[in-house]
Design a protein around this nucleic acid. Structure first.
Length: 230
DNA sequence: GACCAGGCACATC
DNA sequence: GATGTGCATGGT
């Protein structure tokens, strides 16, 4: 169990990188696709979100002006696989209204906005919490901001880095104070955490399939089986 | 059939 | 501020 030093965090990342390879996030063709994808990916498996995005693309709607003009019910019908489809259709509408009014559908203008003020504006949109906003900033707009999710919290607690009931912002600060602010690093660090947590180690009492090894020994498990900690 | 996946808003105490 | 609930599909 570690002290959460910068060196330990980078060691942790290196082990994941060696075991899993670079994750190549975000799997999207355009920044706009990433932004809509961040909404659709809320609390759902990536396969579900991905199908919803494909449906929008096939309907010719993954383009700002067209998506803004489409009615909410039609969008909801296309994104059923992403779960909470009525709420998410509404969130897309909220975003499009703000985006068109604020930036005249020009993504370039949005990208030039200072990170902090942009984060504030986005987080004030209904349906946009810190994780969704930070995903948009990092993966859509290439801003150096660390994304925190449930896995990040669980793993950090398990590793002894911080208390599990810290706030989102406190956990984000923890990482950003210790990891060099580098967009590709923040990108893949979060992706590796998700890769680690995403259905690889099942929450079984006697789990022995935890995937990450160092010198032949399992070293971590996001679900807390007690037999593999170094 | 149970469980959970790349959250968030809102009500209530 | 902590805790509980609605949202409501699809893969394992």
């Amino acid at each position: 169990m570690g002290d959460g030093s910068p060196e330990e965090l980078m060691d942790f990342y290196s082990i994941l990188l060696i075991n899993y390879g670079h994750q190549n996030w975000w799997p999207a063709e355009t920044p706009f696709e990433t932004i809509i994808g961040a909404i659709l990916a809320q609390n759902v498996s990536w396969t579900g979100a991905s199908k919803a995005i494909s449906n929008l693309i096939n309907a010719g709607l993954l383009e700002p002006v067209k998506l803004a003009q489409e009615n909410t019910d039609n969008i909801a019908g296309l994104i059923r696989s992403s779960r909470y489809y009525n709420q998410k259709a509404q969130k897309i509408k909220v975003f499009m209204d703000w985006f068109l009014q604020r930036f005249d559908a020009e993504l370039m203008l949005m990208e030039k906005e200072p990170t902090n003020s942009l984060r504030e504006e986005l987080i004030n949109l209904k349906g946009f919490g810190p994780e969704t906003v930070d995903s948009i900033l990092l993966y859509g707009l290439n801003k150096p901001i660390f994304v925190v999710d449930a896995y990040t919290r669980r793993i950090g607690k398990r590793q002894g880095w911080f208390d599990g009931n810290l706030s989102y912002n406190d956990i984000q600060d923890f990482f950003m104070k210790r990891i060099f602010k580098n967009v590709p690093l923040y990108n893949d660090f979060h992706a590796q955490i998700v890769r680690l947590g995403n259905k690889i180690c099942k929450p079984k009492p006697n789990c022995n399939i935890c995937p990450v090894k160092k010198e032949g020994k399992h070293i971590l498990c996001v679900y807390g089986c007690n037999q593999i900690i170094e």
